[in-house]
Simulated scan of single mutants.
Amino acid sequence: MKKLLILSIIFLIFSCSSGNHTVIKVIDGNSFQLSNGVTVILTNVYKSDENIKILERYLRSNILLYDESNEEIKNFSSDQITAWVYNSNGDCVNNLLTGISEITKNKTPKIKKAKLEDNRTVVKFEQESGVLHIPVTINGVEMYFIFDTGAGLISISESVAFDLYKEEKLQDADFIGKGQFSDANGDITEGTIINLQSVIIGNRELVDVQACIIHGQNAPLLFGQSALQKFEKDSVDYSTKEIIFE
């Protein structure tokens, strides 16, 4: 339920509060300027040319700002602040820029929860050697991914990315930049960061989800935290072979 909950509450905040802000200019890989002239430096994010493209994509709509105490920043006593930044999709932009090992659900703002109808997503899985495989539709193409809560981003292989690009399911504008990623063995692998316009799992569609192309034809397809953080929680029922997303 995380995405629906955050979107509903953020929409109410954006509609009724003066705490929402508009970005007019990305300055560099870890800072940008608001419409009121205040410069915002993203907490725990370093300057990077690749980050500029990510910021330009994820800061197109109104944003919310939070301080280190997880309190929303509405008023400014300085023309330069440091903050955690959330966009209208509920994405923590800081986490998207600090590397896959840093993407986590723990930094979500503590917003009072509204009562929403049960809207669970239930997905059947196949198990092989202890690994859970689930069907996911990426930009209109269905494929099976490994359910991996330890993976920071959705990951796909070069061959899958090539097929998507050839079928025009990936566009030039979806390629964001390069990155280095740590695998299960702790080895560092270079990859390409992309934006997936549509990720469908069960009855839920996620839009504009960050993913990485791992350089290797046979790299496994991993369903990681860039998608999982859109949900409030997930649980596995081995008796029914189902994963429940809420």
Rank of each mutant, 00 (worst) to 15 (best):
K124L: 06
F125T: 10
S129I: 00
G130W: 00
V131E: 08
L132A: 08
L132T: 03
I134N: 14
V136I: 15
V136D: 00
V136E: 00
V136K: 02
I138F: 12
I138T: 14
G140S: 02
V141Q: 09
E142V: 11
M143R: 15
M143Y: 10
M143K: 13
Y144A: 10
T149K: 14
G150N: 03
L153M: 05
S155G: 12
S155V: 08
S159H: 07
F162L: 00
L164K: 04
K166I: 02
K166C: 00
E168Y: 00
D174A: 07
D174R: 07
D174Y: 06
D174G: 07
F175K: 13
I176Y: 11
G177T: 10
G179Q: 01
G179L: 02
Q180G: 06
F181C: 03
F181S: 04
D183N: 15
A184P: 08
A184C: 12
A184L: 14
N185L: 13
D187L: 10
D187T: 12
I188P: 02
T189Q: 08
E190L: 08
G191H: 03
I194C: 09
L196A: 09
Q197V: 08
S198I: 04
S198C: 05
V199I: 14
I200D: 00
I201P: 01
G202E: 02
L206W: 07
D208Q: 11
V209F: 06
Q210N: 04
A211K: 05
C212E: 12
C212I: 06
I213L: 10
I214R: 08
Q217N: 07
A219R: 07
P220L: 03
L221A: 14
F223Y: 15
G224D: 03
Q225L: 12
Q225E: 05
L228W: 01
L228P: 01
Q229V: 13
E232Y: 09
E232W: 06
K233T: 10
K233F: 08
S235M: 01
